[in-house]
Nucleic acid binder design. Structure first.
Length: 572
RNA sequence: GCGGAGUUGGUCUAGCCUGGUUAGGAUGUCAGCCCCCCAAGCUGAAGGUCGCGGGUUCAAAUCCCGCACUCCGCACCA
């Protein structure tokens, strides 16, 4: 065949553009890398993918869903650690123009680097003459910040710096207090968010696989670290997962381990029950999208490549024709990193409390502050000192006094007589803690693409998208066998009836019947209803199956219910 | 960012080296004819500032320069 050299991915990209699933955006300005637009079919497929996800991940668990801002001020991403880890000093070799992480280079030469080192200082340090370009050996560098978050400003006079969110998760963390309140203290608490995220990638090739603006579906599952059990685990513990754990990844092994959830947990391959639960759900969801299980795997992230917040991460990867193994979802155990960070930064208590079944007696250190003594010694600073002391933990204060015989507050040395420490014991009915978080996070465009690629097939040189019926953008097409003798009128009536019953149906009477079947197959319409001369006699129509081309005859009256039955997604 | 290749109606492409009349074809789309089941046929129509900008020339899709984008490698991908 002529088109032998063309890959499936190429043909699919062409089909997606031609029929209006999606295409590179801003074509009239030459196109801008990393941005795509979706047409009607793409919008519908995306929408149905989201609906299915909601069913799998939100509704069946009674999780809640939120929609938070896309733009947040600098401080949010400073707290979350993104400013630190998304904003890397890049050193460019002035001779060969290769770029490297400046901090990594300096580290190789055992040079002092500090956390908040400025660009100027870093540049000075790296240009002292001994740091050689690994590529060409040159020693002259220019250092610039490389920031993979989109920066913007907030306010009419650009009063404050802001960022487009690089993940939807932070909105859930910043709003956690109120969400928890609204959820009436539920724990574990699942909070989902679906929306756009932005990453200013260096070179976003690979079409829809790597975008600068993309859509995510995320859940933050909050749980009590002392009660990390997932009550739903028994539903999935015998399921098998195809896993590449850290040790295999380190050895460069590509063949995944096939292991039951139960075993993976007991062997510590998966560290958290909720993480395991969501991994199974993720697998089932991908199967539901039409991605076979043997084209899926869970790939452990090594500590060095893991995100700054993660204690364990598995990438859910699917095998694609041209791009190889591609991450469609990330499953991360984020511990209490995010809430703790926001708590520190905002000075707002984000811990929650649970009633203990039985009150317990706890010993703790109490700090009795001798206000009189402080007032006598530092009358001017009294209020400030008291405020700071109250913020201090008694343990820290005691340690300082034990070590140095005094305590520094507001630059003043308080004598140890100012504070008295008492061991107390009291009855506690509640326990406070910062919830831990497990996060399954999905990239919608990648899922949509993977769905399309696995649905793509050819028959007699024509393209057929075998999209599962419950996902198909157009669910039914109504055709008059020929465009005459009242067949059109009858067809339009059937079409309108289907639409009124909530079925995504189209009508087409242009060209031969074969051509119309082909057009419908190409965009994955699972069922084609044909009105022929027999219809005019007995009110029956034929329904043609996209995948088998088999036809069945039934009455117009039974058609809608029959179709709805075929379109329903049965649970896994 | 670097190196290489490329960008021509909706889609796929010929033409470019060797500058020269209305940029050719296939397919698709639309209208009409025909048509009782899988891209059939016939007739007709619409659709292109040849990626963008500049230069050379009497004349540029074609030669030169810059930029954007795409693909393949390298680097980057929290």
């Amino acid at each position: 065949m002529e088109s032998k050299r063309e890959s499936k991915a190429d043909k699919l990209a062409e089909l997606a553009r031609r029929r209006g699933f999606f295409w590179q955006a801003l074509e009239i300005y030459g196109g801008v890398g990393g941005f795509v637009s979706f047409g009607e079919l793409g919008v519908k497929l995306k929408d149905k993918t989201i609906r299915l996800w909601r069913d799998y991940f939100i509704h069946r668990h009674n999780f809640t869903e939120v929609d938070t801002p896309l733009i947040s001020p600098y401080v949010v991403f400073e707290a979350s650690g993104h400013v630190g880890s998304f904003k890397d000093p890049m050193a460019e070799c002035l001779k060969c123009h290769k770029k490297f992480r400046a901090d990594h280079l300096l580290m190789e030469y055992n040079r002092q680097i500090s956390e908040g080192m400025s660009i100027e200082d870093t540049e000075k340090e790296i240009n002292k003459g001994d740091v050689k370009c690994p590529e060409c050996g040159n020693t002259k560098w220019s250092v610039r910040h490389f920031l993979t978050m989109f920066e913007t400003t907030i306010g009419p006079y650009s009063e404050s710096e802001g960022f487009m969110r690089p993940e939807t998760a932070q909105g859930i963390f910043t709003e956690f207090k109120r969400i928890y309140e609204i959820s009436r203290g539920k724990m574990p608490l699942g909070v989902a968010q679906i929306g756009k995220a932005f990453r200013n990638e260096i070179s976003p090739r690979q079409g829809v696989i790597r975008l600068r603006e993309f859509s995510m579906m995320e859940i933050e599952l909050f749980f009590d670290p002392l009660n990390p059990k997932c009550p739903l685990l028994n539903q999935v513990e015998n399921e098998e997962l195809r896993i590449l754990p850290e040790d295999l990844v380190e050895k460069g092994i590509e063949e995944p381990l096939i292991i039951s959830v139960k075993d993976a947990l007991s062997k510590g391959i998966i560290k958290q029950e909720w993480l395991a639960y969501f991994m199974v759900l993720s697998k089932k969801f991908a199967i539901k999208l039409g991605i076979p299980e043997d084209k899926q795997r869970f790939h452990a992230k090594l500590p060095s490549e893991r995100a700054h917040y993660s204690a364990q991460t598995y990438d859910h990867e699917v095998l694609l024709d041209k791009f190889g193994w591609v991450e469609v979802a990330g499953h991360a155990y984020r511990t209490d990193y995010d809430l703790s960070s926001h708590m520190k930064k905002s000075a707002v208590d984000l811990s929650i409390s649970v009633q203990l079944e039985e009150p317990i007696r706890v010993k703790h250190l109490k700090m009795n502050i001798n206000a009189k003594k402080i007032g006598e010694n530092f009358p001017d600073k009294f209020n400030d000192i008291m405020k700071r002391l109250k913020e201090m933990s008694p343990e820290d204060a005691k340690r300082e006094i034990d070590n140095s015989g005094a305590i520094m507050v507001e630059g003043l040395k308080l004598p140890k007589e100012a504070i008295e420490f008492v061991d107390t014991e009291e009855e506690v009915k509640v326990r406070r803690f910062i919830p831990h978080v497990v996060e399954p996070s999905f990239g919608i465009e990648r899922l949509v693409y993977a769905t399309l690629e696995h649905a793509y097939s050819e028959k007699e040189d024509r393209a057929i998208l075998k999209i599962p019926p419950y996902l198909a953008p157009i669910q039914a097409a109504v055709f008059p066998l020929v465009s005459k003798d009242k067949l059109q009128e009858k067809s339009i009536a059937v079409w309108e009836d289907l639409r009124r019953k909530g079925i995504d149906a189209i009508y087409d009477d242009s060209g031969s019947i074969g051509r119309r079947y082909a057009r419908a197959d190409e965009i994955g319409v699972p069922f084609a209803i044909t009105i022929d001369y027999q219809t005019l006699d007995d009110d029956t129509v034929t329904i043609r199956d996209r995948d088998t081309w088999k036809q069945k005859r039934l009455t117009i009256k039974d058609l809608p219910d029959h179709l709805l039955g075929l379109l329903r997604s049965s649970d896994p």
